[in-house]
Amino acid sequence: MNIFRLGGDLAHLLAIIILLLKIWTTRSCAGISGKSQILFALTFTARYLDLFTNFVSVYNSVMKVVYLAAAYATLYLMYVKFKATYDHNHDTFRLEFLILPAAGLALIINHEFSIIEVMWTFSIYLEAVAILPQLFMVSKTGEAESITSHYLFALGSYRALYIVNWVYRYYSEGFYDMIATLAGVVQTVLYCDFFYLYITKVLKGKKLQLPA
């Protein structure tokens, strides 16, 4: 565990907490894509199938449980408790366009053709594009609340920090995982446009509004 990996995990945790707190305190999930949240729940479920078969550390197991619980709690808040505030008219991205290619690619390009390995690979590919429905929603409405922007910034920073972690691990341990790294780069690139808007607008106290 290095500082970049820890920073990535904490940024991820922060993003999840920001989202849950936003929904809970405002009693509303307006502006949040339920489609992206479904994809994140699916991602964690497919990736952490090894929760009971592969013990790494207490830290690892606790984080896995927290990510899974938070993902399903978010879905519960969006689709059950505060369903009336869910902005489904603007959340029109077709999930099969992301799930099917991710599943197909996982079957073809993986480290080993076993159920647990293919599911892990599927989760890596799916996570890379899981934010697209949310970004699509922001582009459709042309704006995002500040709190939603903070959520997206923390979530985007997480994989960016993981990339630094992978570079560090390559030089310090000779460890590398091409699938995770390439997917992580794709994932981070998808946030670049948002990062630019966040830094030039939100950090200067303005609302995130897309140029007309």
């Binding site: 990996r5 592969n54 550390s57 990510y67 892990w120 460890f175 590398y176 995982d177 699938i179």
Partner: peptide
Amino acid sequence: SRKTLPKDEL
């Protein structure tokens, strides 16, 4: 290409 098993990242 993976050098370590099992997976230790999240």
